[in-house]
């Protein structure tokens, strides 16, 4: 009787852990899916220094010691428009431009047939050479 009970308990646990494992995998998969669907790509020059970000470094990682400018906006394009240009005040050119795409950006673009676009860009300018 006790054995039967143990055995059924074991089965219950197995089923429980199987479901838990599946749930865990599903969560992990979803997490990875959403994580991977949010990405950034950087274009940078090889031979120039970036404008430093002033006396207090506030950025981390790649952007540390670089003066970062942000473009974070939602654009509504006219029916006949499909290109956007942003003019930045980089006296000696762009040092790095990073654009970021998330699943939300893609969905917004899709459901508005490309007419509403979320734009999230970071950029740094080349350090003025004073020469």
């Amino acid at each position: 009787m006790i054995q039967q009970s143990d055995s059924s308990l074991r089965v219950s646990f197995r089923v429980f852990f199987f479901h838990q494992e599946m749930l865990g995998k599903a969560c992990l998969f979803s997490f990875m899916f959403f994580l991977a669907s949010c990405y950034s790509v950087r274009l940078s020059v090889k031979n120039a220094a970036a404008t430093p970000d002033g006396p207090i470094a506030t950025e981390e990682g790649y952007w540390r010691n670089k003066q970062v400018n942000h473009i974070d906006t939602t654009l509504r394009l006219g029916l006949m428009n499909n290109e956007v240009m942003y003019l930045a005040d980089c006296r000696e050119g762009y040092h790095t431009v990073e654009y970021r795409v998330s699943l939300g950006h893609v969905l917004l673009n899709a459901i508005t047939f490309g007419k509403v676009r979320k734009i999230k860009v970071k950029y740094a300018c080349v350090k003025p050479q004073n020469n």
């Binding site: 430093p52 002033g54 006396p55 350090k127 003025p128 050479q129 004073n130 020469n131």
Partner: peptide, 11 residues
């Protein structure tokens, strides 16, 4: 007082 001089870069 600290003085940040990274923008002083004439050559």
């Amino acid at each position: 007082r600290m003085h940040f001089n990274a923008m002083m870069n004439i050559k």
